[in-house]
Design a protein around this nucleic acid. Structure first.
Lengths: 194, 194
DNA sequence: CGATTCTTTGAAAACAGTCAATCTGTGTGG
DNA sequence: CCACACAGATTGACTGTTTTCAAAGAATCG
């Protein structure tokens, strides 16, 4: 279960990972299996764990006054799940995170991250890169949301994340893009015509 | 010119700042004055500098095929300006950044940041906090863009950033919110009625 | 003052959301 | 193996919102 995570760390870091480091990593990250629909986080709770997904798929979403769900993030193998603000500031989250598929994950608390893991050079190097990539991706999504049409947002998303299109149903993708499932259905019909 | 920046660093850090550190900071950050409309970055260029704004206001925007500008970020005193992806990866940017008001800024290159400044504990501590705050803010903005109405997005923005409302004209705010200036004008008229 | 920028307004067109119905595929239990 | 339930996808008719385009009215600045 930890092996794919060790490989993942190495892919993000030039620093060596010693045996002791690997032991520490294995002892600190808690393996947990989630069944479909099981929560990693429920709105109102503090996000105690950040989860590295070894296998499966999760979604993070908020729920508005009308009860509509709005998907803010999707994660599959070799991605992370967790509400970063709640996780690092220890404040209640407004988001829910649940398993869309049965999921194997590795969990870590912020305290464990700060106290032990962040002192491993390969880990802090990885985190720096992940933070950069995360910021880049969020910036791009914001730019897309204010400057692209719904149709173009879908096209770009499908091109950049084809695996997500396969793994999540259309109404989830629509929500992620900020449109209704009906609108996405019609956009796709138009696209087929061309 | 550097004094307000030193105070800013201290406000983000518990680590002490020695005389030598302050000297290094003063020698590394390049003070530069921008006239209104002057570019910090033009699309197609690499974003060579990240700018700490001592006084003034800047905006970051992309331009679409039709020539419409889409504002992705606004910055005033004690905020930063720069395209992070271009700055750290040294790749050409798709954004323009220009001074909306005459602006005094302190500029730094990514190489100078990595080589010297990041080794000052107060600086790296500050950067970590800024990165967190930046990620939180981007996440909130994405959630707002997919789950709030245009009216609510404007209200939240006005409540959270009243200074921005004062300093930037409505068509800039509208673009930032992802709506047209006409729509924002009508939203405001509705709001006055209530 | 004159020029420029910013804001507002109106009318029409384009776009997206809502609601309700139907269709499809999948999987479960009898 | 069939019947049924369930989740997902599609469609149509309607409603509501936002954009577009054009014009005119304020405000600001040199």
């Amino acid at each position: 279960m930890h092996d794919s995570f060790i490989a993942y760390i190495k892919s993000y870091s030039a620093s060596p990972l010693g045996e002791a480091d690997i032991e520490l990593i294995k002892n600190t990250f808690l393996p947990k299996r989630f069944r479909r629909k099981q929560y990693l986080l429920q709105a109102g709770e503090v996000c105690k764990y950040s989860a590295f997904i070894v296998k499966g798929a999760m979604r993070q979403y908020s729920v508005d006054e009308k009860g509509n769900e709005h998907v803010v993030r999707l994660s599959i193998e070799n991605w992370w799940a967790g509400d970063r603000e709640s996780f690092t500031m220890l404040i209640p989250s407004i988001y829910n995170i649940d398993a869309w598929e049965d999921t194997d994950a590795l969990l870590i608390t912020y305290a464990d991250f700060l106290n032990g893991l962040n002192k491993i050079p390969a880990i802090s190097e990885m985190i720096t890169k992940l933070d950069h990539n995360h910021a880049f991706a969020l910036q791009k999504r914001i730019n897309a949301s204010i400057s692209f049409s719904a149709e173009k947002r879908y096209e770009e998303f499908a091109k950049q994340y084809p695996e997500f299109i396969k793994r999540f149903p259309q109404h989830i993708i629509a929500s992620y893009l900020g449109i209704t499932k009906e609108t996405l259905s019609r956009i796709r019909r138009q696209a087929v015509k061309k």
